[in-house]
Design a protein around this nucleic acid. Structure first.
Lengths: 355, 355
DNA sequence: TCGTTTGGCCCAATCGTTTGGGTCGATGTT
DNA sequence: AACATCGACCCAAACGATTGGGCCAAACGA
């Protein structure tokens, strides 16, 4: 095996075979047409044999320098320690490596300054394109970048009219509402997430609209903003459960917020699924395994990641593209079904379809 | 602002100022000594001014090609959707960017083939060094790489005598044992994790040793292997709770496994903290927010990540290095304290210290 | 028999930096 | 007045790959 210290170059192969580097280059990495004209079948074979024997790997820096293409894409997420984004990223990585792309990921903590800064550093690294998982609804940074000709797509959240792959969150909100309506809940509340993220906004909107259509409008004080994490959900739930007319059901736009809410419920002496129904979002693997399994709207996270890469690849190829919106499904479990056991099918990741 | 399409080069600056690129290069990116000798103060200032005005960013591919140093490091983890690794990675990213390094992360799913493959691709990308968060106890891949002169460090798990930054997991296991001994538990069990990971092995060993020292040896059937996730924990707990002499306390080597165990406990009609004590590991943010807050051994995850980068930086600088072992602390909560409320101080990430 | 084609290569420029070694005029030394 | 020194630059060769043009000999057509 080759010594990592001095990787083998085209020149090494060429010299050893008494050929020119250009010939070797064309045979090894040329486009189909070029490759054919570069050398005779026999020579080409000798080149390929020696290359694999020596363990030749093209130097990506040299290639990028010459071709002005890095095959690198940058991925920005609020935080990788958020399971949802981590899962989306797994999809991204999978698809990227199929496309022959490598990815840089970075955490922006959802802070605009950091988003700018990290974007800048990605661009300095000469990425070919970017995937933003942390788009803010106002889209100011994104608009600027687009104007500068930076190529990117969004995932999970949409903003402005930039190409994106998202879950149909509005529809997801409606599904949650539908389910709770079916179970007869009239006094319901929403833990709505952060106002700069389209996910929380749309899920909330779908839920609220569906209830309004059913003739049961939600008063404003039953929709409270929150962070997307467990602590945020707990705080929001405290607020809701302290209200004079306590809701009989809560829709949290995120599973982790829902788990926090479950904690708050317990502190209030409420039994989940009996005294209080709870619906989460994303159907995190955790949801099914909790002491009281959580009803949740499943979004195809990994698939979103994959498709975001496909979409970006098309953007990079200069094609016109359309945003995609994947369809969610609701998985009902004990948290909304009383003491009845949970009916649950747990496969890794639903497919969802475009629309 | 500069157009992203045709980034500004040294040549652009040099031409505009009637200077040579070498002069500009030395002023902008040269070592301190070089920089001084390169140009007069006035000229240097003109260069710097124009550079910032045009938004000059050195082309990293050109630099890497020339210097044979990429300032890139590769990070391999089992899966980023594991909160523990994701958090460690956050620390890595933080420290890396302070060192002026960029990181490639990739998921290996703990599968040896994939580990090989992804390592290979990192090396093909010409990373300067690697951080493995997925070291297997047998260390065969790592030994090979070391022999080839590849530079790397391990994080979270150790293996062989390769430099690593870990939590003192053995000590953590002892802490858990100590706590349960204090609470009077004599019939205890361990959900031990996967046998190829030093984390689970050491935590289990520490726990078992401490109990043996206390004169209460654990029978083998009370130590069961498991995956590190929620489903794994649930399965393992089923096994334990179905045993004739049901344990009064369980130590799970991972918070997620512990959450799964909590689910199983509930299915068996056991109240957590009353009928069954439960201790987790890592003190994931979730632990504190669960309906029944979880006692857990806190490991300084983010700090481990940071230190791994520092360690790797020293390795890359050619220095001799020593492995580091950070100290864990136990955070007691309701899951081992009966109906008493949890005494809990929740700051983000303990510091821990080397040993 | 003399083009013309074509197969099979090689040449050389180029991408943007870094870096060891000039050059050249002004200043300082003796 | 001759000479070394120094400050402020410039030159040019890499680094490893890609790619538009050659070039030469053999094969082919008329």
């Amino acid at each position: 095996m080759a010594n990592r210290r001095r990787p083998v170059t085209l020149r090494a192969i060429a010299d050893q075979l008494g050929l020119d580097v250009s010939t070797v280059s064309r045979v090894l990495n040329g486009a189909a047409g070029d490759r054919a004209r570069a050398a005779s079948g026999a020579t080409a074979q000798r080149i390929r044999d020696l290359a694999t024997e020596l363990g030749y790997r093209p130097n990506p820096h040299a290639t990028s320098l010459r071709t002005q293409r890095s095959n690198l894409i940058g991925v920005l997420v609020p935080r990788l320690s958020d399971l949802v984004l981590a899962t989306i990223y797994e999809g991204i990585e999978e698809a990227a490596s199929q496309h022959g792309l490598s990815t840089f990921v970075t955490n922006t903590r959802d802070e605009p300054d950091k988003q700018r800064d990290r974007t800048e550093m990605m661009l300095a690294r000469r990425v070919d394109g970017l995937i933003f998982g942390d788009a803010h609804a106002d889209a100011v940074l994104l608009d600027e970048l687009a104007a500068q000709g930076v190529r990117f797509v969004l995932v999970s959240r949409w903003a402005g009219s930039h190409p994106s792959v998202t879950c149909d969150d509005y529809q997801g909100g409606r599904l949650a509402a539908e389910h709770l309506l079916d179970r007869g809940h009239e006094r319901v509340a929403v833990i709505a997430g952060e106002p700069h993220a389209s996910t929380g906004l749309d899920r909330t909107a779908g839920f609220v609209d569906r209830y309004r259509e059913a003739g049961v409008p939600l008063p404003e004080h039953r929709v409270v903003r929150s962070r997307f994490d467990t602590a945020g959900g707990r705080q929001a739930a405290e607020l809701l459960l302290d209200q004079a007319e306590r809701p009989s059901a809560i829709f949290a736009v995120n599973d982790f917020a829902a788990i926090g809410a479950a904690g708050a419920a317990r502190d209030h002496g409420l039994r989940l699924g009996e005294d209080l129904a709870l619906v989460g979002f994303n159907d995190t693997p955790l949801a099914a395994e909790l002491p009281i399994p959580l009803t949740s709207v499943r979004s195809p996270m990994r698939e979103m990641g994959r498709r975001a890469v496909d979409l970006l690849a098309r953007v990079l190829a200069g094609q016109r593209v359309e945003s995609e919106r994947l369809t969610p499904t609701l998985v009902a479990r004990a948290s909304t079904l009383g003491s009845t056991g949970a009916g649950d099918s747990h496969d890794d990741d639903g497919g969802g379809n475009a629309g």
